[in-house]
């Protein structure tokens, strides 16, 4: 049972249609450059506001919290449109050519990629504006990639739900924040390692493993639950 389930979704993941849907999303992103630049501008503006509002560059703790909170808001804005932008007619078209698992996989992968790009850009901007209190940049970048993945996965599903309610980004935030909170705390704790904090033996891998497990849980739930959002 389990193995056939796995096989089925492995198949769906590798499937041509998923790739085609992914390609369509990327193409769309290139065509509608204004939304992409919009998010970039959003990141830059937010970080610039923080830079101006802080009297001096923040210490490591605050830097860390600020970074993750900004990540959260960037994600809400970047991922929010992934379902909201699809018109009813287009959804009907996708419905006729793909199955829900393929469709949600396409969306998940696209949003993860988008979020990774945004995370790395905002990390660079943080370095430029707010200094670099990190002792190990590469470790932190790794954690950022891990974290960006988790956040974008959760918000993809939230976006799918909010799109059904014909609602704006505010609903996504309301739905997503309580769910993402533990993961965010986990990431903040985990990223302290890059500030030179010494962890207990094995605790680092335990935390990273937990984050990964949460991601997998979200993917599994998304694949199980999305078909119910899909049919209309």
């Amino acid at each position: 049972m389990i193995s056939s389930f796995d096989e089925f979704y492995y198949f769906a993941l590798m499937n041509q249609q998923t790739l085609a849907l992914l390609k369509k999303d990327i193409l769309l992103e290139f065509r509608q450059k204004h939304t992409f630049y919009g998010i970039l501008l959003y990141i830059a503006a937010t970080i610039f506001v923080i830079y101006l509002s802080l009297p001096e560059s923040p210490d490591a703790q605050i830097w860390n919290s600020l970074f993750w909170v900004i990540q959260l808001f960037v994600c809400v804005n970047a991922v929010a449109k992934s379902f909201l932008q699809e018109s009813k007619g287009r959804m009907l078209y996708f419905y006729s050519i793909a199955n829900p698992a393929q469709f949600i996989f396409g969306k998940l992968i696209f949003n993860v990629l988008l979020m990774l790009l945004m995370s790395l850009i905002s990390l660079c901007l943080f370095f430029v504006f707010l200094d670099n209190p990190l002792s190990n940049v590469f470790q932190f970048a790794g954690i950022v990639i891990l974290g960006g993945m988790g956040i974008s996965l959760v918000f993809t599903l939230m976006s799918a739900i909010a799109a059904k309610a014909q609602q704006n980004a505010a609903l996504i935030a309301i739905l997503g924040f309580p769910v993402i909170l533990p993961q965010l705390l986990l990431l903040m704790k985990l990223s302290k390692v890059a500030f030179g904090e010494v962890f207990r033996e094995g605790a680092l891998f335990q935390l990273a493993g937990l984050t990964l497990l949460m991601d997998i849980l979200v993917i599994v739930l998304a694949v199980i639950l999305f078909p119910f959002l899909w049919k209309d």
Binding site: I161, A165, L175, P182, L185, L217, L221, L225, F228, L229
Partner: peptide
């Protein structure tokens, strides 16, 4: 009914690991 059921299931399933992790 459908959408709120989906959210309920998702949120409740995420709640337990959270309570265990925090």
């Amino acid at each position: 009914a459908r959408v709120s059921a989906v959210y309920n299931i998702f949120a409740f399933a995420m709640l337990f690991p959270s309570i265990w992790i925090i």
